[in-house]
Design a binder for these strands. Structure first.
Length: 259
DNA sequence: ATGGTAGATAGTCTA
């Protein structure tokens, strides 16, 4: 089972790019972030025509997540638990039925800038709720993963210019600590389980020729429960996509599970 | 120091 996470930065603007990408790579499951569309406006048909079930959790204008799956899916839930008043569409879950059943959570973690401030408080509060959901996933003792745009640069190695991000909401010490707390519950960060060292990025800003200068950051991650980590065979970043026509500012991050 | 770009939307907000 191959699963990719991809912040597409708007499904209306990116539909053709994403459809071409799906035709080329044919992931079994695609977790999409920043669909920037309400559910009713998501262009389901061309995705269904490629053999994907389409489950969306959108809102007007911003945010929004989706799960596309070639495999059967069950028990879809929307919204991160823990705050009834949170109206931002940033979380969707489903159980994907392959050779093994895998609980798949797609997430778009708040950016949090400017920090400090109310947006940063919302980010840290959201991460606290994420930790609670993560603890519950671990207790199931089944293959499960949480993947998406975390808006977290975990370590200095994950940025081309770490000093430029030092005070940013994506890299502040409180952000990194909250991310570590979740990982250290017992999750495997798939990419770092497969590859160490600097120079691996999943996002390049549209501005100032960031991609041409390889001025990137690695903020899109797969966190696996121990039972899912046992099934991990590969993890890779499809950086090449950033250099094509009309790209998203993020690129897909893939994992392959023996499931 | 500022502005540089992109998307959704319809004046700005988010990133």
């Amino acid at each position: 089972m191959r699963i990719a996470t991809f912040n597409i930065n708007g499904v209306k603007a990116r539909a053709e790019v994403v459809l071409d990408w799906l035709r080329d790579g044919a992931p079994d499951v695609a977790l999409l972030q920043e669909i920037k569309s309400v559910d009713e406006a998501f262009p389901r048909e061309p995705f269904e025509d490629l053999g994907y079930r389409v489950e969306t959790h959108g809102q007007k204008g911003f945010n929004g997540v989706a799960i596309l799956s070639k495999l059967p899916i069950e028990d879809v839930t929307r919204g991160l638990p823990g705050d009834e008043d949170d109206e931002q569409a940033r979380w969707i879950e489903a159980t994907v039925i392959g050779a093994r059943a895998v609980r798949v959570c797609g997430l778009y973690l708040p950016n949090g800038n400017p920090a400090p401030g109310p947006k940063y408080d919302y980010k840290l509060g959201w991460m606290d709720r994420l930790k609670t959901r993560a603890e519950a996933l671990l207790k199931m003792e089944e293959p499960a993963l949480m993947a998406g745009d975390y808006n977290v640069i975990p370590q200095d190695d994950d940025a081309a210019r770490p000093d430029a991000w030092r005070d940013d909401a994506l890299a502040r010490p409180e952000t990194r600590a909250a991310f570590r707390e979740i990982v250290n519950l017992g999750f495997t960060e798939a990419f770092r389980a497969r590859k160490q060292g600097p120079g691996h990025y999943s996002f390049w800003d549209y501005q100032a020729g960031a991609y041409d200068r390889n001025d990137g950051i690695r903020i899109d991650h797969h966190l696996l429960t121990p039972q899912a980590a046992d099934l991990l065979t590969e993890c890779w970043i499809e950086a090449e996509l950033r250099g094509r026509e009309k790209p998203s500012d993020h690129v897909p991050v893939w994992i392959e599970l023996d499931a």
